[in-house]
Amino acid sequence: MPRKAWGLTVLLLITLLVFAGLLALSWLRIRPATVPGEVVAGKRVWQKYGCVECHTILGNGGYVGPDLTHVAGSRQEKDLRRFLTTPARMRPHARRRHPPVKPTEVEALMAYFYFLDRLQVKGWPPRTVLETEISAPDPDQGTREGDQE
């Protein structure tokens, strides 16, 4: 083989080694072996129903439904359970409904959603203008307190 072929092989091996090393570090951080059994069952339910075709988790999937990475933290649990077992009409459709999930599978799916909600995803999705305004202290409040003093 000519030198260039060896060079390409060496470059490929170096790139793969660097990639593998960085992945190994990431793997140690996420510790996949420690995922609880209920969460694993929930992930299987997620895959069984092909939820990813309409929804995203971690931003990857279909865009016709909302992202569900933090759904457990942003919705009431009882509302979510009710929606999954007795689905409502899907906007903007007049007749089409969300496919129902078996009550026995809802528990596992909820565990999966809670697990996703706790993942450290580097501040994604970003805080929106509305969220920032809601959580910021009311500027008028300080004035009123000052007035009282």
């Binding site: 990639f19 570090l25 951080r29 971690l58 990857n60």
Partner: peptide, 15 residues
């Protein structure tokens, strides 16, 4: 190979 990294930004991996 290393540009695969742009798919790893927001999935819970290091910065």
């Amino acid at each position: 190979i290393l540009s695969t990294a742009h798919h790893y930004y927001w999935i819970g991996l290091p910065s």
